[in-house]
């Protein structure tokens, strides 16, 4: 098991954001958390990454307890996690090469090895011609690929994706979904993806987790979740 979350609680100003959630994710799975804005899905992701500490409960990553009962025990940089942010968060002052190199250099990987891994990753994401460009010089789709490449180059145990495709037009969204799936399958990486878009969730997930008001309402495959959602009263639909 790659990620194990047990009875996780998190409140902001006494308003619960995550309300006693337990979720286990197996190696190689593609889990998508589906829910409306403010349902606590991003908070959950940020707790796994280590940016937010849960008020209660335990989080384990690859057998290591990283947070327990309000305390973060392992810093984000030591959790072996990759993340693609909603606004991508590409460093504007670093080139594509610099964006990919930063993490490798921080982990003291030798220069030859760094360059080899960067080139390999840029080939995989079809971004090699843009190696020396800066993020501001790239299109939206190219920036998405670089954000993904930057997360994957660190060979993380789990890839977290926080609505990374939400700002794209539908054609580019569909194309990148396909590319994300291909990369995930090629690398066999575990993926936890957050979205409010049902189509996106069903096309990417091996398992969908439906969240609302800080609680998990349903866990299942696309068919099971579609059936569950169709049975909900209209005003409760996600």
């Amino acid at each position: 098991m790659i990620v194990k979350m047990d009875h996780i609680f998190k409140s902001y100003d006494k308003i619960p954001a995550v309300n006693g959630i337990s979720l286990h994710i197996e190696k190689g799975e593609r889990v998508v958390i589906l829910g409306p804005s403010g349902c606590g899905k991003t908070t959950l992701l940020r707790m796994i990454a280590g940016f937010v500490s849960p008020d209660k409960g335990t989080i384990e990553i690859d057998g290591l307890v990283v947070a327990k009962n309000g305390r973060s025990l392992v810093e984000p940089e030591n959790r072996k996690i990759g993340m693609v942010f909603q606004d991508l968060a590409l460093w504007p002052h670093k080139s594509v090469h610099g964006n990919l190199e930063f993490g490798l250099r921080a982990k003291k990987i030798p220069k030859n090895e760094r360059n080899k891994r960067i080139d390999e990753m840029l080939v995989k994401t079809q971004m090699i011609p843009f190696k020396n460009n800066f993020p501001g010089e790239l299109s939206g789709g190219q920036q998405q690929r670089i954000a993904l490449a930057r997360a994957l180059i660190m060979e993380p145990k789990i890839l977290l994706m926080d609505e990374p495709l939400s700002n794209l037009d539908i054609d580019l969204n569909l194309l990148l979904r396909k590319e994300v799936l291909e990369l995930q399958e090629e690398l066999g990486i575990t993926m936890l993806y957050v979205t409010h878009d049902r189509d996106e969730a069903f096309s990417l997930a091996t398992r969908v987790v439906v969240m609302q008001h800080g609680n998990i309402q349903k866990i299942g495959n696309a068919d099971e979740v579609t059936k569950f959602l169709s049975e909900l009263p209209v005003n409760k639909k996600t």
Binding site: A49, F51, E75, P76, E77, R79, I81, G82, M83, F85, Q86, D87, A89, L90, W91, P92, F102, G103, L104, A106, K107, R150, A151, M154
Partner: peptide, 19 residues
């Protein structure tokens, strides 16, 4: 988010110095 993205692989002094 730019700092968080860097914090996934580096310590705070490195994040401040490089980002």
């Amino acid at each position: 988010k730019l700092e968080e993205a860097a914090k996934l692989s580096a310590t705070w002094p490195v994040v401040l110095r490089e980002i």
